[in-house]
Design a binder for these strands. Structure first.
Lengths: 339, 339
DNA sequence: ACTTGGCACTCGGATTGGGGGAGTGCCAAG
DNA sequence: CTTGGCACTCCCCCAATCCGAGTGCCAAGT
């Protein structure tokens, strides 16, 4: 009973603080939320909650604000993901439906997420490692230079210029192209290198050096997690962060420019089939101490290809944000899987 | 004589204000800069400059700050582009030298510019319209779907999926590929459509519908200015803008997210072979009233392929910024041209 | 054992009221 | 045309003050 009400009070504090952005006091709480008790009682509960570390006061004799720990409890036990409204769902379909290629899908997704949540959105490109090879193309640029283009089933296109010591005859290239495609088409990138081991053997001794150079380039592209690309958008929503500016926005902007940091933010989250929330100091970057990340994997039913998420102040609307992230992730997953 | 000194005073005001970020008064001016006249004299000149609209005072009895018009005069007549230091030049070479493909070049350029100028950098991808076709590739995805990949001499890769009503036999595709490449390889994109007019004639009547669909897709990709892509970086440098925050940073962030706005910022500048400066209200977007854009075209000797630039507060170090932009533009131009 | 009203207390934030000073404009003399 | 002098004007900074929301605790009520 008492425990129950304490949790109820915590929920009320989080909700009020999220909507007003101001420390919330016992009186306002008692009034606005229909808990049938007096401010004094709430004060007792609040004192307890503070002892346990769920809330804190900025200064003596101010209202309380939730701590990271408080938000954590709220997210884990006091709230449920809020489904989107039907118009919102429709908007997603319309907005993503018009996409033509992978870049377009990712770009639209980022804008969509940013608009829906009014926060900063981050979307990772479908990972190369988990997708499969659709086609390998070799194009002569100059006698000694070859452009290798790798197309995956997720629509991603990787390119690389190969410099060869000797001239590469067009016929050789054609042969190699055919062999390559026969060997790896439809194969997952991670498994592809194994299929290439005996390709060199098919060529004459004098051809082998050239073949080897091209092959090694293909292998590199296959194996290297390659710069896992991440796209960010909605930075203007940072202005919503609060009036306590440069200090708070600066490190966030810095973090957002580092692909590496973005990748870690998304990458270190848990089960990709569920919405994950990392709150404040739980994030792997100190500049984001006042920031939460809501993320989720997307891809085919069976497997996540990549992740996406949004980033906002710890004082965000978790249920709503989680709902938006989940809905978008599912929808994008469907699109990417069927493409 | 008098005119000359007035200009000298204006230059001093701009330089001082840029370095201190504070309104500059007559006394400080007389001391710090070696104009051999008394503060009183300077006051007279300042009054004149104010009448003519080159400087203004934030409030009565404060120092003066340059107006947009003042900066304009400074840029046009009082300053010269400041060449980079040798170490800086080396840094450019090292940093851009390691680039492997077009995306990489553009990405590195943006980071380089942002770091060099400590401002927000904007780089446009080499335009399709002005570059030429290196290769067209057609790949079967499923019996009725064909992926068209267009590779330009600037290293840019455009892709598009073509849906055909009927099955597309591999042999037909091969033929078409050969014809296409024979027709347009090495041709500028703008001129390419003309070369394709009689391609359809080479096919049998029953093949033509399929050929036509693929061709029209190729044409679209060739003709459409296609989303002219722009990349932005160094947003963290916005924090340097000033302590008068959200109001000033918000519209800028918003503008930076609009590809369209970015394109206009770069696009409307003048002669692409020279460094162009747009100051404050000269910009085609009201959110950027306190912002200047320094931009320049880059590409081969003969012709600019695209533009790049930086964006910062009107109170920026113009000579230095212009020097950095020019140096980077030239170097990137060289790299892109020879690639 | 909780809840409640009462009450003294504590600070942060907004407001007010002077100085202090940088900077200006004008004037009269060089 | 330049210069020193001088009165004047505001802005900015600081300190003192007040106000009130909010707290903690206690003693009484259920």
């Amino acid at each position: 009973m008492l425990e129950d009400r304490k949790l109820e009070v915590l929920r009320a504090i989080v909700e009020d603080y999220v909507s007003t952005h101001e420390p919330v006091g016992s009186k306002a709480l008692a009034e606005r939320h229909g808990l049938g008790v007096s401010p004094a009682t709430i004060r007792n509960d609040m004192a307890a909650l503070e002892d346990e570390g769920y809330i804190a006061q900025p200064h003596t004799s101010a209202g309380r604000i939730p701590t990271d720990k408080g938000y954590r409890l709220f997210v884990d036990r006091l709230s449920s993901v809020k489904p989107l409204s039907t118009p919102e769902r429709n908007a997603i379909q319309v907005f993503l439906g018009g996409a033509v290629d992978l870049d377009d899908i990712v770009g639209r997704t980022v804008r969509l997420l940013a608009q829906l949540t009014r926060q900063v959105a981050v979307v990772q490109y479908p990972s190369l490692a988990r997708s499969s090879v659709r086609h390998v193309e070799l194009v002569t640029l100059s006698p000694t230079r070859v452009l290798m283009v790798l197309i995956t089933n997720t629509g991603r296109v990787e390119q690389r210029v190969v410099e060869c010591a000797a001239d590469v005859p067009e016929t050789l290239l054609g042969e190699l192209r055919a062999l390559l495609n026969a060997a790896v088409a439809g194969v997952r990138l991670a498994d592809a290198p194994g299929r290439l081991t005996d390709v060199t053997d098919r060529f004459t001794l004098e051809q082998r050096p050239v073949v080897a150079v091209v092959l090694s380039s293909v292998l590199e592209t296959l194996v290297e997690p390659q710069e896992e690309r991440v796209v960010m958008g909605g930075a203007a929503n940072l202005a919503r962060f609060g009036p306590d500016f440069p200090q708070s926005i600066r490190p966030v902007l810095e973090a957002l420019e580092e692909q590496v940091v973005l990748l870690r933010l998304l990458g270190e989250a848990g089960d990709p089939s569920l919405v994950t929330v990392r709150i404040g100091h739980e994030n792997p970057y100190e500049g984001l101490a006042a920031t939460s990340v809501v993320s989720m994997g997307y891809g085919s039913e069976s497997e996540a290809l990549a992740k996406l998420g949004v980033l906002g102040p710890t004082r965000m609307d978790y249920p709503g944000t989680m709902g938006a992230v989940r809905a978008v992730a599912r929808y994008v997953g469907k699109i990417v899987a069927e493409a």
